[in-house]
Design a protein around this nucleic acid. Structure first.
Length: 605
RNA sequence: GGCCCCGUAGCUCAGUUGGAUAGAGCGGCGGAUUCCUAAUCCGCAGGCCACAGGUUCGAUUCCUGUCGGGGUCACCA
């Protein structure tokens, strides 16, 4: 029933050779490049012991010790044991010895020591602080040029015309939006496409229903509500009056034959629905380059089928025309129904080709529920069979479903209701904040609601199913969107306080950073260093939740310092400036990261 | 039945190409606010990582099987 890319549904995965991961996987990014000199030194030391290790191999093997007092970087020696015919602890000790003379050439490293089978390096706190903060303060921190010169397309959201924008449509919308921003951040030129469910027999039913019971004023007052009600009522009536079924089919036939009256209905329903969707998209901060719905491809279906026919791809089966895919252990892909009509897959084939031809994309992502995995396996396989080598650049990005929002059980939840409730809850809290105008309050409350809802969805692995829960999705305590927004706001007011306290002093990095040699700051710097790697991995795995979780880790590291530790701003200008620099770096990364996953940034809370 | 996803603390989830004592939030209990926003922070309790084998110096992680939950398997989208 979910027209094109409905929200509910199951999940599957295609054969391994077509898997998303394989298609889009890029070389795993090692840890921070700043550690390269250290890695090189370790590689040399290993070489002097008789093992051959490249710089990159070492860099990739580097990890973090479980406890901070053990050091900042760890290198496990287990893999060397066989080649060196020696026990790992022995090797670690030998490496530490061999590196003793190299320490002078590694200004960032203050100490290297063996700890059992591990070789642990301690980084010089203030040098590291300066390096990390300088990098992180740059607005482009975390950017990469991986996608420069490449084009990507993303198909996401794709709701059904004349049906409410349910909470179920949230997933595709926010995941797709985050993937879009992640790709753009990596230099890709991205085109977003909203594959609206704007065609099919359900429109015939809708028209038949409107002819019978439609109400102009109700339609204009609340279009989707009215149309949805008609649709539901129509289905209920069909139970007792089966002839309505045929009436709906007749109307759809008229639509396909370009009957003016049917056409007019379609245009109206579509326009009105789109207007409502746009309101939600605006609220979410989501946009699309193209609203190419299913109907967009109508004219391309017949030529496509003819071509497939000529190429001998189609086989007759039970009156239908199909592409057999037995060799891939997939069910045959239906192209033409026995009554001559096209299907969902037909439209997707045409769409894929059209998009590739007009956009020239190197990669195209379909952010659609996991229930449609088989469908996409089929479509991709057929395109491949048609000789379209570019089909290798297509990937389905599946996600789990939201449970407990069945239409049948009457538990359908409208996204707008969720956002409204979130806004009202936020308003309650904001009431206690002084110095805010009503407009500011309203806008901020909405940003908080959006932040809560978006983040709640993006905070878990996308494949996971989850139960819809009002309290959980709008929660602002703990690891939530509002928590991050709040942290970001406080970081901002910290800078403001600094400027008020030290008028005329530009916040910058003072020469003396010794006040940053603390456990709390060390933890923050470690988080800041992770950001570029996180961005690359989240893009590689098409998993925005990695960014979400990272931002929480970063915010928690900062809050532990801010709330539990020393006072950041004191009478000491230099020390205050040094600590503010850390805060500004965190704010910069937090802001960038929240932008990537589509969480709005209130300027006050 | 075939195939796919999932199974980690009471609940919701992390767990870095396999690595040191498996982590966090919520909930529970106990603390912190004359001071930079308490939508915050600190502490305590809570685990046969579903089960059984296998590979490995080492497995929550990889392989096989079993059990449990969800999904999917041609004329809907």
């Amino acid at each position: 029933m979910p027209a094109r890319r409905g929200a509910d549904g199951p999940r599957t995965t295609r054969p391994s050779h077509l898997r998303t991961r394989d298609r889009c996987r890029r070389r795993a990014k090692p840890m921070s490049e700043a550690l390269r000199p250290l890695a090189a030194a370790i590689a040399r030391a290993a070489g002097s012991l008789g093992a051959t290790l490249t710089e990159d191999e070492v860099l990739a093997a580097l990890g973090t010790p479980p406890r901070p007092e053990m050091g900042d970087v760890a290198f496990p020696t287990f893999p060397l044991a066989r080649a060196l015919r020696n026990a790992p602890p022995r090797i670690a000790a030998d490496l530490a010895e061999a590196l003793r003379t190299e320490l002078d050439d590694l200004p960032d490293v203050s100490r290297i020591e063996a700890a059992g089978p591990y070789l642990n390096a301690h980084l010089d706190p203030t040098r590291r602080a300066r390096r990390v903060i300088e990098q992180a303060l740059d607005t482009g921190y975390g950017r990469s040029s991986d996608g420069v010169g490449r084009k990507a397309g993303i198909d996401y959201s794709s709701p059904n015309i004349a049906k409410p924008f349910g909470i179920g449509h949230l997933r595709s919308t926010v995941i797709g939006n985050a993937l879009r921003r992640l790709h753009e951040f990596q230099g890709w030129q991205v085109t977003s496409v909203n594959h609206l469910g704007d065609w099919g027999t359900q429109f015939g039913k809708l028209m038949a229903a409107f002819e019978r019971w439609g109400d102009e004023t109700a339609l204009l007052d609340d279009p989707i509500q009215h149309l949805y009600r008609l649709y539901v009522d129509f289905h209920r009536e069909i139970e007792t009056r089966p002839e309505l079924e045929e009436e709906g089919r007749a109307w759809f036939r008229r639509l396909e034959e370009d009957d003016p009256r049917a056409r007019e209905y379609w245009e109206r329903f579509r326009t009105l629905s789109l207007r409502e969707f746009q309101r939600i998209y605006d609220r979410l901060g989501v946009s699309f380059d193209h609203f190419w719905g299913e109907a967009w491809y109508n004219g391309m279906l017949e030529p496509l089928v003819n071509e497939m026919e000529q190429d001998g791809l189609l086989v007759e089966s039970e009156g239908a025309r199909v592409v057999p895919l037995d060799d891939l252990e997939l069910p045959p892909c239906l192209i033409v129904k026995s009554d001559g009509a096209s299907l969902y897959a037909t439209r997707d084939l045409a769409a894929a080709r059209y998009r590739h031809d007009t956009l020239g994309t190197d990669r195209f992502l379909y952010v659609v529920g996991a229930a449609q995995s088989v469908h996409f396996q089929q479509v991709f396989a057929v395109l491949d069979r048609m000789g379209h080598t570019w089909a290798r650049g297509l990937a389905h990005v599946p996600f789990g479903m939201i449970l407990g929002i069945s239409t049948r059980k009457g538990t359908l939840v409208f996204l707008e209701d969720v956002l409204d409730r979130g806004r009202d809850l936020a308003l309650e809290v904001l009431r206690t904040r002084p110095g805010l105008s009503d407009e500011e309050r309203a806008r901020i409350a909405d940003q908080i609601a959006v932040g809560a809802v978006v983040f709640a969805d993006l905070s878990r692995n996308r494949m996971r199913d989850y139960e819809f829960d009002w309290d959980r999705i709008l929660d602002w305590n703990g690891r939530t969107g509002p928590y991050l927004q709040y942290t970001h706001v406080r970081l901002g007011s910290l800078e403001q306080t600094f400027r008020e306290r030290f008028p005329g002093v530009e916040p910058g990095l003072p020469d003396d950073l010794s006040c940053l040699d603390s456990e709390h700051v060390r933890a923050i710097l470690q988080q800041l260093e992770r950001f570029p790697t996180i961005v690359v991995e989240a893009t590689r795995d098409l998993e925005p939740s990695q960014v979400s979780r990272y931002l929480l880790d970063l915010a928690e590291a900062f809050n532990a310092w801010y709330s539990g530790g020393e006072r950041l701003l004191t009478d000491d200008v230099a020390a205050s400036a040094a600590r503010l620099a850390v805060a500004r770096a965190v704010r910069q990364v937090l802001g960038t990261g929240l932008g990537l996953i589509g969480v709005p940034l209130p300027d006050r809370m």
